[in-house]
Design a protein around this nucleic acid. Structure first.
Lengths: 143, 143
DNA sequence: AAAGATTGACTAATCAATCTTG
DNA sequence: CAAGATTGATTAGTCAATCTTT
């Protein structure tokens, strides 16, 4: 379980570090950046559905998140052409800009932390493999 | 930044998986388990102060967390012998029990996910090294 | 004054109930 | 009735103000 402990601790620490850097440079905060990046990845064709999956939060939370993004002028819902239950979520120009600006800082901080380490690629590969694996096998002991 | 993305994603996924397993087996939830483990690590001599640091949440949040743990009968504040501003937080017998029960399930799930992978030790070492590193060098670009 | 903690006002997540469209 | 999303009530976190002890 040591792996799990360190994983959690390091992820939290790094997330917070990037978050602080963003806030300190007068920007949007890591959670918002994370959402914008996911939306931007779908390139204007993302729905609440997918944001929920991408962020691993509930549908309700994702819906409210988009409310906030709209309120802050970073994204907007546009009617889905084929399915009137759904909206397509696209970044506004301001949202695009904030996303790029944020990514620059994030990249900087991460590079700063990882700088000089040679086995990042290996660790990335390992985590990546585990990430694949975790989709399957939901059998769980009921201890 | 790919490393960061995968790190965040995998940590979230694994955390949620363990959380679901705990809930499904009628137990306490990962956040609570995490807190109990940290308190148990200090073996009855932990203060709100330290819980805050261990969980990487604010002092206020840690204080309220302990309120909840007390309300649920999992931990209790005992007056600090030397410093009357502070309390020492110890697990109740129920808390100890819940912690052990939870750890068993967590261990099971993690083993299930990591099972058969040979380079966990290497990844753990890398993350561990980075965790050390991250304490220092708080200089940050103001892009 | 500084350190440790608590509290109140606010923000964000969850869950369940609901509404609409397929 | 399923699928997609929204909303309301509750729970947990942040931040700032405060209180007590050092």
């Amino acid at each position: 379980v040591e792996f799990f402990d360190i994983l959690v601790r390091f992820e939290t620490e790094l997330w917070n570090k990037v978050d602080r850097a963003l806030i300190d440079s007068g920007q949007i905060g890591m959670a918002t950046l994370h959402a914008l990046r996911m939306l931007s990845r779908h390139d204007g064709s993302g729905r609440v559905n997918e944001l929920s999956a991408d962020l691993a939060i509930t549908i309700g939370a994702a819906s409210k998140f988009v409310d906030r993004l709209e309120r802050d002028g970073l994204a907007e819902r546009r009617p889905h052409p084929a399915d009137r239950r759904s909206s397509l979520i696209s970044l506004t120009p301001a949202g695009e800009k904030a996303c790029l600006r944020g990514e620059r800082v994030a990249r900087q901080v991460v590079a700063d932390v990882l700088g000089g380490e040679d086995d990042i690629a290996a660790a990335t590969a390992t985590l990546s493999r585990l990430l694949m694996r975790i989709g399957a096998a939901d059998a769980v002991a009921t201890a």
